[in-house]
Design a protein around this nucleic acid. Sequence first.
DNA 1: GAATATGGTACTGTATACAATTTTGAGTGC
DNA 2: GCACTCAAAATTGTATACAGTACCATATTC
Lengths: 232, 232
Amino acid sequence: MTKADSNVDRIYEKLRKMAAYFELKPDARINESALSTELGASRTPLREALNRLVAEGFLTFQSGRGFFCRPLSPKLILDLYEARVAIETEIVRLVCRRASDEELQDLMEFLKSTEPDYDSCEDPMELLSMDEAYHMRIAALSQSNELVRILENLNDRVRYIRLVDLKYLRGKTPVSTQEEAQLSAHRVVLTALINRDEDKAVSTMRHHIERRRDEATEAVRIAYSQLYVPAD
Amino acid sequence: MTKADSNVDRIYEKLRKMAAYFELKPDARINESALSTELGASRTPLREALNRLVAEGFLTFQSGRGFFCRPLSPKLILDLYEARVAIETEIVRLVCRRASDEELQDLMEFLKSTEPDYDSCEDPMELLSMDEAYHMRIAALSQSNELVRILENLNDRVRYIRLVDLKYLRGKTPVSTQEEAQLSAHRVVLTALINRDEDKAVSTMRHHIERRRDEATEAVRIAYSQLYVPAD
DNA sequence: GAATATGGTACTGTATACAATTTTGAGTGC
DNA sequence: GCACTCAAAATTGTATACAGTACCATATTC
């Protein structure tokens, strides 16, 4: 599904990953010729992919000067988290009204089955994938393609910071308690959904995300130091 | 600001308008050569603009077959309205916490000053512009660029249906009462904001948009009949 | 007559060339 | 040492060419 058949899709996927993880440094100018040879294609399809990424907020574009990587600032990351709150709270609201008991029970099974993995997993990247997968599964139950679409975009753009957050900030507390809190939030939301307690589900989801948002500024600072320091 | 300096920006803006108003019929295939000569440019910049529009949800793309206009279905429009609810309720919440009394008073002045225009205006297009302008002014007070950005995209994509709604559905009731309801909703939200009554502001905004959403299915039906009928 | 093969046409996908513009850096004057 | 000038180099913007693919209409077979 995410699999790209055409060439420009392939370039696009690759670039999106590069942009997501800031392999292209913030605000740096993109050299089209260099990048095109690096990716094994000519500038025409490359520019098509770059234009898509501009529209998605991964890159910026200045007429006559070319493409630039997106900036990375605390304000921007806060904005992304705030947008996530807007989208995910509405998703929870819709799920509460639309999901069948069966669907919610399936999700609970999924949650229970992944709990051992959460506990044992030490790789932040993998933890993040599991967390995102869970959030996207809830999103799917909202039956709103548009909310899903927007959430995917927001997740992609905030992923690097979440990774840094997971690795350098929440690593301070033991993994077990840290993930317990995370898991319990997931459980509380889902339990509230099963009980059709909309207000509780919504407010728990809101606080779950807002807690992370409050760490974002610090995470951005660390992200910068990571990006502009020789690899560890 | 919306003014495009470069050529691809010019093409992009023009195409976005065409797509917004379904001058390109739903699901129709786009002939790149024909369109490029029509727009007075070659296929290269045209395709760059088309790729941006794909990313923004105005067009779809199938590898090997080219670009297509976006589909128009009741479900899709409902999704867009639901996303608007998500974004605008969160915007109102943030405005309630962040906007200064002065900013809110300014907005109230703006609202009062445009009321005569609402009453006298018979052109749906103009009414819609005024309504959107008001909503975007509130959005600006949220201080969240991301929410503003998403809302702009949603507005663009739902505009044609809102226009049809305004023209063919709400035209049934006298303009005066119809716009009164609209205006009063705006006033109620703003008054609640001034009183820092977050819950009231949020729920009023929610219902204000949901009321329109409920008319959407019918509006889509009418939109179809308008699009596939010789011009009136 | 329906289904399938086939050839031609039209369109998309991408490389490349070149013009236009911006950037860079050496040189000059103060 | 600093600012300014200007030409060379690098880079972007766009047209065009051509290869590859999908599409369509006609023909052919059962």
